[in-house]
Design a protein around this nucleic acid. Sequence first.
DNA 1: ACACTTTCCGTAAACGTTTTCGAAAGGGCG
DNA 2: CGCCCTTTCGAAAACGTTTACGGAAAGTGT
Lengths: 337, 337
Amino acid sequence: MNIKGLAQALGLSIGTVSRALNDKPDVSEATRKRVLDAAVKLGYSANASGRSLRRGRTQTVAVVLETGQADVRAGDAFFMRIIDAMQDTLAAHGYDLIILPSNSSGDPTAFLKRIMARGMADAIVITATLADDPRLKLLMSGHVPFLSFGRTQTTRDYAWVDLDFEGFLWRAMQALADLGHRDIAITVPPNNSNIAVILRETYEACCAQLGLPHDPDLVQVAEHSEFGGAAVVRSLLARPHPPTALVLNYEMMAFGAYSALRDAGLAPGRDLSLITLRRSRQLRFLEPVVAACDIDVEGLGRTLATETLRVIHAQHPSAAIRWPTPLTLTSSVGPPR
Amino acid sequence: MNIKGLAQALGLSIGTVSRALNDKPDVSEATRKRVLDAAVKLGYSANASGRSLRRGRTQTVAVVLETGQADVRAGDAFFMRIIDAMQDTLAAHGYDLIILPSNSSGDPTAFLKRIMARGMADAIVITATLADDPRLKLLMSGHVPFLSFGRTQTTRDYAWVDLDFEGFLWRAMQALADLGHRDIAITVPPNNSNIAVILRETYEACCAQLGLPHDPDLVQVAEHSEFGGAAVVRSLLARPHPPTALVLNYEMMAFGAYSALRDAGLAPGRDLSLITLRRSRQLRFLEPVVAACDIDVEGLGRTLATETLRVIHAQHPSAAIRWPTPLTLTSSVGPPR
DNA sequence: ACACTTTCCGTAAACGTTTTCGAAAGGGCG
DNA sequence: CGCCCTTTCGAAAACGTTTACGGAAAGTGT
């Protein structure tokens, strides 16, 4: 069923039918209703290719998901919940959302280049940004609106939304320092991730500001998994002077950290204060409850959607949004022994 | 840059350029090479809408992901790994893969109907099937090829690929019975999921075949989370005669089960034999290693892709594939006390 | 009765691509 | 040199939709 069939069934021209369906003027209310009724009855929905071709836009936002990156593999449905909220907001504005899995086996820039050239979407949202991300250069040189969920080290400006890692680490370090901690360890992802750069810089600034010793060994590169958390804790406990607090940048590491502490006969909050970045649903399973940020995931998704709509409509200024990371302290944090 | 610009830059007609790019005959090797070189140099890639409109197909497979379903929220990147493998295979056959998140807040059939009518994909892959899934009726009444990742209770035949839940439960129950277990509990998801139906029927058949008592209370509806696993174990241990073995249908429950056992001063494999369905990466963190199926995820993805290509090309017979669930026993399984 | 506006609808072009058809050019052969 | 066949290319239609434009009918005011 295409628009020609619909027009024939109604005894109208396709032009009139199209205008009726698209809320254009120059069509009487009576025929508009007749057309709309027939459309739902006959199950007509405008062919996407034809419409996109004529309009020059697809009414579609593409989210490029780097399936190889650890963030996507997050323990709970962090990304899926964000995308759910994005989709709700985009749908309210007449846009579809599609996810394009950028395969780990392929070249991410080639993938991007293709979907840009083929005009598959009116806007592209990329995720899991690297410190020096080749995708940014590519997107900035193209003419497809884009939003970056995550920052890079580029000085040129572009629209991005990211978690407020700086605020998180500041609040965590401040709270720990207030309790008397002086040796505070943190975990960072591998260096090519921009999060690692942010956390390292912020850590250094925190130590300077709070008058803490800045021991580079306290910045631990850790795998994004339970194993990573356990490995870091074991490595820290093996030192002659273990730190008294640890800030984790990925929530699943808390499971490993708790487990490693328990194996050593130690307790979170008493022997090692623990703070992690994001409270996920399954984190509630840990005892004692771990200090973490309660991030408004749905709000984040809505914001990503509205900022995407802004870049589509070329509204200024472009986004530069650090999404709040409100930290909730729990008994996993205590004074140093 | 469209094909007209490319043709002008080359001093050729657009028809010739198109034939050169699409490996059609009636174009000399010299000009074909000239066209291909110019295409990569000018960054030309055929506009998706124009091509789809003319060809009548999009060269795209849409995977509809029910973001609200627990399976998608699986602990590791089960789905993402499957989709990675699917995409590799589809790309080798010239197809793109897009993920359409079916929002939990919307009507899944309305969503499907729209993408069918709009011709957004040459084939649709649905996931997380229910015992009585309205999407099946809709898809069967339409003319868009589709593949179901998961079965339903429909008697009509359609192409599906699913995990071999029957085989898994048979092997698990047989192994446990061989060790002397007689009271074996299992978990099932809520009843509208088709997996629940399969597991219940298989459980009943297993008990009959193995001569075990068929106690309906041993079939426990459990939440797909650590909490679910913990709750089931606690509930079972509170009985006057607790079962001696438990088969879990979702791997994250194993964390909860281990934890609940530990809290009760009991040990997996000694006081309660535990088997879970799928070995995920993070499951390796549990001690002792839990018995589970080592599913060939990449092979599953490839199979989903090839079966999707089969339904696209209307090749018979249609798929009815139970993907192997080879069970590996570990010390989480032992004789009953 | 007339001119003028308004309302409503049909016609046709355009979006970028593929594909059919025909035609031009070149080569082989009598 | 004429004929036929092959190779190579251009012209044009078609896919389904939107939209600019024109025109018919109806209404409005003199």
